[in-house]
């Protein structure tokens, strides 16, 4: 059974870019959300195993959303995909429950590598 992916980003073109890359990776796209509020709702409905999460978003930011998603399912694998390039933000995201951090701008290869690492850690 394919694992399900939820894509969270306030940019439509970034959501589409991730969906294109992950579609060929064998992940089923369970949903796409433009902010944390919508992401939390979709997460509860679709229960994906993997989430890509932007941080700077309206209504509910990515850090708060990671915290809330992690509270629903502590086993979910979360890859942060953000332009915020400072170490403190990456560390905070990991503390809140993310397992990986990919800095924007990113290439498709970098994304598939980051998702691959996320899932291989899950398997080990």
């Amino acid at each position: 059974m394919n694992r399900k992916l939820l894509i969270v980003d306030d940019s439509n073109i970034i959501r589409n870019k991730i969906a294109r890359a992950m579609g060929s990776y064998g992940l089923e796209i369970a949903g796409m959300a433009p902010n944390g509020e919508k992401a939390l709702q979709l997460f509860k409905e679709a229960r994906p195993q993997v989430v890509t999460m932007d941080l700077t978003m309206p209504e509910m930011d990515g850090i708060e959303c990671i915290r809330k998603i992690h509270a629903v399912d502590p086993n979910v694998r979360i890859l942060v995909v953000s332009a915020l390039a400072d170490k403190a933000t990456a560390i905070q995201a990991l503390k809140e429950g993310a397992q990986g951090f990919l800095c924007k701008p990113f290439t498709e290869d970098e994304l598939t590598e980051a998702i691959g690492e996320l899932l291989s850690e899950e398997a080990s």
């Binding site: 306030d10 940019s11 073109i13 970034i14 700077t56 978003m57 309206p58 953000s82 332009a83 915020l84 390039a85 400072d86 403190a88 933000t89 800095c103 924007k104 701008p105």
Partner: peptide, 25 residues
């Protein structure tokens, strides 16, 4: 895309300016 490029450039600047360099949507 114009918004995303502005966001990406500003967010990347936090590598040097630190996490108190706060950026809006």
């Amino acid at each position: 895309l114009a918004g995303e490029i502005g966001n990406t450039i500003s967010g990347n600047a936090r590598r040097q300016f630190g996490n108190e360099f706060l950026i809006s949507v």
